[in-house]
Design a protein around this nucleic acid. Structure first.
Lengths: 242, 242
DNA sequence: AGACTTTTAATTGTCTTACAATTAAAATTG
DNA sequence: CAATTTTAATTGTAAGACAATTAAAAGTCT
């Protein structure tokens, strides 16, 4: 584990990269303890604060965790799906908000991915996935529900649909696409009538998933995509008018 | 922008979170300069090294960039698709390698997502996407190509397919799924015969995309998925025998 | 001997101070 | 006015100290 003495990059970047490489290549294994900060600073011939900056970079990516105390130190972290979800969502959300991605583009991506899950979900969904979907549909029909709460429930519904595919890698990939849409979705005002339409489509999707009917689920998702895009367009048109 | 004085978390974590929140909420805009490290340390009432650790955490997520010199400082970074790709790939690769995700699961996820792109790609692909696909197919047929190079070309082919959909959000989401498979794919030894079969399928896909024929592209991808899974299974079976 | 308490040592977290490197802007000079 | 030099602001790095935490070791009491 060495660093390039001729590099123009900051030392803490180089050290972080060296350790990251060691983790990715497997020469540092999960739960293995890294040398102490003092040892690392001697090894790389830098000061302890510099080593610490490097370690913080790695901690920010959930690559290591640190523990204080006698037998403490920095340990290689097992990246959990949960951690990865979180990072995906943060990154996706920022990416969309900072790059002026149109609602249509984000929406298309999201539904394309969801439709990829639907056939698998129709085949493998378990009772609890269906139960969650039904519960969220019920919640969406409650009067007095705020637009934010309606959106949140929408996300939960779609997550259950995706999780029904029983493929954690798919769930992880989709988490970003679905959750990152939420800020854009929150612009939309959901009238009673549009909620009704969405709930009807959700019900059709849930029914299809329950009946192992991939085709119907797909077409319902397709309609939902068009309808959502239309709602967003109306909001945009309304804004431009005023 | 404040931090909780009663929190049990490390100060640098709290400060990073406070700044992150300010960026996500939009109260710090892209390219806006943060206060200097000295000012931040006074504002949060902590030392400069602690502030620096917080800033390094944010830099690791590409949320800020720093510049030395008179009018330097830390600036809110515009998260580019390029940056996001990189993070996605690192995270996905580690996730798969650290969680003993089966080849089958990862493969299923990858092809499910790719098949979601295929119809869009068949509709919108441009000349350069087709050119890249054809070029990679040609490369894959070259004798003396190493297995790693064959895999890399395979990735490039599939990226061109995905990019053909003309949706950067989809491309970003798929980057992780496709590239993270590479380490697993590298286990596979591609014989002359298996390469031939893969190239034939790639050609069928490219032809279908060129002909705007989503259906054929989908079925070819489906076959490719089965074939890839079969190759992997053979490798695993072979290993268990010895 | 065994259970409980205290001490110790290792380690990370934080602070302080200082200096080096870099860079844009201001001041100086020809 | 252009080129050069100086200056000041800012991040990067270093060194050393102390606080907080924690597991293990040592000690103590029953």
């Amino acid at each position: 584990m060495k660093i390039d003495p001729d590099s123009s990059k900051d030392l803490s970047v180089q050290i972080a990269q060296a350790i990251r490489d060691a983790i990715i290549s497997g020469s540092l294994r999960v739960d293995e303890r890294l040398p102490s900060e003092t040892e690392l600073s001697e090894h790389f011939d830098v000061s302890r604060p510099t080593v610490r900056e490097a370690l913080k970079r790695l901690a920010a990516q959930s690559l290591i965790r640190t523990q204080r105390g006698a037998s403490g130190g920095a340990f290689v972290n097992r990246l959990t799906f949960q951690d990865a979800y979180g990072q995906q969502i943060t990154t996706s959300t920022l990416l969309l908000s900072m790059n002026a991605v149109s609602f249509e583009t984000a929406c298309e991506a999201r539904y394309a991915l969801e439709r990829a899950c639907a056939p698998l979900s129709a085949q493998r969904r378990e009772a609890d996935h269906l139960a969650t979907m039904r519960a969220e549909i019920y919640r969406q029909g409650q009067p007095g529900l705020s637009d934010e709460a309606f959106c949140a429930s929408d996300v939960a519904f779609h997550r259950a649909l995706v999780d029904g595919a029983g493929n954690p890698v798919l769930s992880y990939q989709l988490a970003g696409a679905v959750e990152a849409m939420q800020p854009s979705m929150n612009m939309i005002t959901f009238t009673a009538r549009s909620r009704e339409a969405i709930i009807a489509l959700h019900t059709r999707i849930a029914d299809a998933i329950e009946a192992n009917d991939a085709g119907t689920a797909d077409s319902a998702l397709s309609e939902l995509q068009s309808y959502t895009a239309k709602l967003a367009n109306d909001v945009i048109a309304q804004r431009e008018k005023t």
